[in-house]
Design a protein around this nucleic acid. Sequence first.
DNA 1: ACGATTTCTGAAAACGATTACAATTATGAT
DNA 2: ATCATAATTGTAATCGTTTTCAGAAATCGT
Lengths: 328, 328
Amino acid sequence: MITITDVAKHAGLSRATVSRVINNRPYVSEEKKKLVRNAMDKLGYYPNSSAQRLRNQKTNIIGVLVPRLTNPFFINIIEGIEKIAAESGLQLLICQTKSDKQKELNYFTLLRTKQVDGIILTSLENDWEQFSPYVDYGPVILCNEYYENATVPMIRLNQYEGSYIGARHLIDRGHRKIGYCGGGSTSGLSKDRKRGLKKALEEAGLSLNPNWIFHKRYSIEDGRELMKEITAMEDRPTAIFTNSDEVAAGIIKESKELGLKVPDDLAVIGFDNQPIAELIEPRLTTIDQPSEEIGEKAMETMVAVLNQQKIDTNLKGLNLKLIVRDST
Amino acid sequence: MITITDVAKHAGLSRATVSRVINNRPYVSEEKKKLVRNAMDKLGYYPNSSAQRLRNQKTNIIGVLVPRLTNPFFINIIEGIEKIAAESGLQLLICQTKSDKQKELNYFTLLRTKQVDGIILTSLENDWEQFSPYVDYGPVILCNEYYENATVPMIRLNQYEGSYIGARHLIDRGHRKIGYCGGGSTSGLSKDRKRGLKKALEEAGLSLNPNWIFHKRYSIEDGRELMKEITAMEDRPTAIFTNSDEVAAGIIKESKELGLKVPDDLAVIGFDNQPIAELIEPRLTTIDQPSEEIGEKAMETMVAVLNQQKIDTNLKGLNLKLIVRDST
DNA sequence: ACGATTTCTGAAAACGATTACAATTATGAT
DNA sequence: ATCATAATTGTAATCGTTTTCAGAAATCGT
C-alpha cells in the first residue's frame, strides 16, 4: 500500500508538507505543491481513511436507522438525507432494524465504537428512556418519528393533524364504523395518529371500537391477513384507517379476492402516498407526507449539530395532505 | 473517551493483556480476565474501531453497489447479502449509483482509501475495462450482472434462458410483433436477455423490429412514458417484453389510462416477480428470479475470497421461472 | 531436583495520518 | 541596514489499537 511516507520520499519532502497539500492547508509554496501532486499522481496515492479517522477523531459517517428498506417511504427519507450528506461530504451507513427493539438498540454501539459520528432515527421501537443514555456518545436526531419528552432535535410533521383530516374525510363520507390499524408504539407519532382519529370521531359523536384496533402491521402481506381477520368478524367496520399504503394495498387486494367492493363494502385510507397508491385499483386515498424534505431537513440539522451551529427544526410549509382517490 | 489504556490502568494490567481479553486470545489467566472484564464493564469501554481498522488493516465492511434503492429487486439482493454478512460479522456500505457511469466508478475509491474490504456490484454501467484496474485494490464480486470477459467471481443466473422462455411464452400466445425494453448496456446480462429474445423470435421465423427496441427505462414513470411513445406509433407491437416489473407496471397503468386493454391490445411481460406484479390489474406475467439467494451466494463468495478459501460460484438449482398471470 | 516446556505478562514498536512547535528563510517597514 | 513579521518546511508527538519479543513464573517428565 502507498502511504503518505512514500509520497513524501518521492517528492523529497516531509510527511507534514504532503499532509498540508492533501488538506489544502496554507503555507505551502506553489513549487512544493506541484512536487507533491506529481508524486501523488505518479504513485496513485489515496489517503488511508482509517488513519485519518483515528487521527481526526471523526468518521464523516452518519448512521441512518430505518425499519425496513422494502418500504418506499423510508427510501424517500434516505434519498433526502443522502442528498444533503453528499453536499456535506458525509457518508451514510444505512441500518435496518426490522422493527426489532433489540436490533434498534444494538445499532447504538456504532456511536460508542466511533464507527459513526451521529445517528438519525426514522422509526422508533424503544421508549425514549432506552435511548437517552446514548445521547452522550454523539448527536442523535429523530426524523419523522418523535417523542414528547426527548431532548434531541426532532424533525417532525403534525401527525395529529394528518390523522385528523384523514378521519374527517371518512366521517364526511358517511362512515360511522371506523377501524384503525397503527403502529401501537409509545412514540409521539403513533400516539398522535391515534389521537387525531379519536378527536375526529369524538367530534362526530363516535368512539373507537377496541375490536377494530390493530397493531404492528407493516407489509402488504400483513394487510391481507388483517383483511381476513376483519372478514371473520360478525360486526365489521365500514372503513379502515391504516398507517401505511402497503397495508392498505394488502387490504384492498384481499378484499377483492374475497369478493368485497372497495369502497362500497369497505373504505380504505392509506398513509404516505407511495407509488403503489396510484397503481392499485381502486386507486388509494391516502395522506401524503413530504418524506424527502424531512430527510433533507434532518440531515441539515445533523450537519449543523456537528458543526456546532445553532439549529432550526422548524418545518413550516411542510404539511400532511389528504389525497382523495377512489378507495374512500 | 475511554481507551484501552484506561481499562489497563483500572485493572492494574498492561494494554497488551486487555487486548488479549478483548480478542479472546489464549494465555491469559482466568483471574486477570475477570479483572479486565470488570474494568471494561465499570468504565463502559468500547474499542475504537478506527484504531482497530488501522492496526488490523481491514475494515470488515463490504461496499454494495446498487442502481437505486427504490427497486425492490435490489433490496431483495441486499437482504440476502446482509443475512450472510451478519453471520460473518461484516457490515454493509450500501451505495446508490443512480445508474450513473461516473458515480459507479467513483465508488471504487472506497477500495483505494480502505474504507471497505471488498465490493459487490449488482448492476453495471461501465464496461469491464473500466473496472479491471481496480481489482488489484481488493476483491470485487459481481452479483446478478456479469461480463463475458471479467476475471472476478460472478454470481449469475442464466438470463439467456430466462429471456428465451419469456419470449417463447409470448410467441406461444400468438404474438408476432414483439417489442423489447431492456437495459442496453454492454453487460452480459443485458446482451443475453436480448439474445434470448432474438433466439426465440428466430425460431418462430420472426425478427426484432429496431423501432420496437427501447433502452434505459427503469421506473414506473419510464414505463408510462414508453407507453405513450408506443401509442404514438403507427405500426405498434402487440406484445412487449420488459426488463423489470416496474416498467411493465407503468406500461399497464398507462395503457388503461389510454383506453387500451391488456393483454388484448397489448400483452406485457415483466421481469423479477416483485410484489407489484401481484397487485396490479391485470396481474403481471413475469419472470421470477431468486434474488435473495443470489445475494446470499455473492456474500458467501466474498467471505470465502476474504478468507482465501477456494470459491464455488455454482448456482445449480437456482433458475429463472416464468410466472404466468393475466397480462399476457 | 533439574532442565525443558508451557503459560502468563508487559514493554515497545508498529499501523498511516495530522499538527504543535521549532527552525529557517523571505518580506516589509523604517 | 535592521528589526519585526510572515511564509515555508521539518521533527516529533499523537490518535487507540494489536502484536512481536523477551523475560518471569508455573508445570511437567524423569
